[in-house]
Amino acid sequence: MLMDVRFKRDGTALIAYIEGEIDHHTSRILRERIDSKFIVEPVKNLIMDLSRVTFMDSAGIGFILGRMKKVSSIGGEMSIRNPRPEIMKMLKMSHIDSLIKLDT
C-alpha cells in the first residue's frame, strides 16, 4: 500500500490523516476519498495531517491547492499539520505556506 487515509471529525473540521506517498498516481485516489468524505460529513473545515507522508512531488501541490479551493468555496478553511522536512521543502518551494495555515 503506497498511500492510505484515515478520517476523524473534530467539531466543524474533518481531519484527514494521510499516510505514505503522494504523487500523481496516489493523489487521484486520495482526492476521491477526501472529497467524498468531506461532502457527507457535517463539516466546513479541512485539516490535512501530513505527519506520516514520506514522499510528495508537485502532484501534491496541485492536490492541496485543489482541496483548498473546494473548502474555501463553501466558506471553510483548510490547514496542514506536521509535514516532515522533505515535505516542508516542497511546500515552501511552491509558496503554499503563504496561502494555507500550517501547524508544525
Binding site: 493523489s27 482526492r31 512531488d57 508537485s58 502532484a59 501541490i61 496541485g62 492536490f63 491547492l65 485543489g66 516542497m90 518551494m93 511552491s94
Partner: peptide, 14 residues
C-alpha cells in the same frame, strides 16, 4: 483540469 500545479520543471530545476 487534472489539478496540475505547473511546478514540475521548477522542482526538477531546484
Amino acid at each position: 483540469d487534472l489539478e496540475r500545479s505547473g511546478m514540475g520543471f521548477t522542482v526538477m530545476e531546484t
